[in-house]
């Protein structure tokens, strides 16, 4: 059993895939920042941002359904913003009565809730686009290029390299537990929650011990190949002129959309 399917990267020779990782990382972060800066309730701005994003999604030649279904991940968090229409002051648009409780829905609150939901839904798709179209080593070198310290990038890289190994081991542990957890008719399944939590803890502990032991072996392997405490990395790939062009153009488009959104917001 291997869980390489966990890696969201889908190799494909599309335009988006062939973009430089540094350009993609900066443009995606810029996009999320632009979305965040877009004032609440400027639907035209959200439309333009989403059109931009969906174009990139089409250019990545990945099924749009994939983006939409993966984007559901941020949905549960909307619970946190759900009270907004009832608590924000503003012009009343509806009123409910549940028992003795009177709930007033304000327009401002509702607009804010919808804006937060849309922003979150658009932003998460941009992040998915990055993960789908960029192999992790490229994201790592992009991080180095934007100034993330070498040591941290090295830890990220090592983590990524062993992530799937440990995920496989975790699946084996779960399988082993399942195969030893028989069910008998008429008997209660398993023991108390505390016991179950402790078993899960034991399994996690097992994983950590393997982690320590593997880290020792990794360290020795590194030393045997000349590791002296200094983290060395390959040179970043050469920066092409076209990258600058795409980057400047992208950031310009973001600024224009943002300017437009703000103009609409202040002149309504």
């Amino acid at each position: 059993m291997h869980i390489h399917f966990l890696d969201p990267y889908h190799p494909h020779p599309s335009l988006i895939h062939s973009l430089d990782g540094r350009v993609k990382l900066i443009l995606v972060i810029g996009f999320v920042l632009t979305t965040s800066l877009m004032p609440a309730g400027v639907w035209a701005g959200y439309l333009l941002l989403y059109a931009l994003l969906i174009s990139a999604e089409i250019l990545s030649e990945e099924r749009l359904r994939y983006y939409l279904s993966r984007a559901l991940i941020s949905i549960p968090f909307i619970l946190a913003a759900l009270p907004l229409p009832f608590t924000m002051k503003g012009s009343m648009i509806a009123q409910f009565q549940i028992g003795s409780l009177i709930l007033t829905v304000s327009q401002e609150g509702l607009v804010r809730l919808i804006s937060i939901t849309l922003k979150s839904w658009i932003s998460v798709q941009a992040a998915i686009l990055l993960a789908v179209s960029t192999p992790f080593p490229d994201i790592l070198s992009a991080m180095r290029a934007v100034g993330v310290p070498r040591l941290l990038v090295a830890v990220f890289g090592l983590m990524w390299r062993y992530l799937f190994v440990f995920a496989d081991e975790a699946l084996h542990l779960i399988q082993a537990r399942a195969s030893r957890s028989s069910k008998l008719e008429g008997y209660k399944e398993g023991r108390s929650v505390i016991w179950r939590a402790n078993i899960a803890g034991g399994m996690a502990g097992n994983l950590f011990i393997r982690g320590f032991e593997r880290a020792d072996r990794v360290y020795m392997a590194m030393v045997s190949r000349g590791y002296d405490g200094e983290v060395r990395t390959l040179h970043l790939p050469a920066w092409k002129k076209i990258n600058t062009l795409i980057l400047v153009f992208g950031l310009l488009v973001y600024s224009l959309i943002l300017l437009l959104g703000n103009l609409i917001f202040y002149f309504r």
Binding site: M159, Y162, A167, A170, A215, V218
Partner: peptide, 22 residues
């Protein structure tokens, strides 16, 4: 210098450890 591989590998173990649910 042992800490560099240890941190990376343990981060992976913690990430995978989050799969062990009850």
């Amino acid at each position: 210098e042992r800490q560099v591989p240890l941190m990376g590998v343990l981060a992976a173990a913690i990430f995978a450890g989050q799969m062990l649910n009850f």
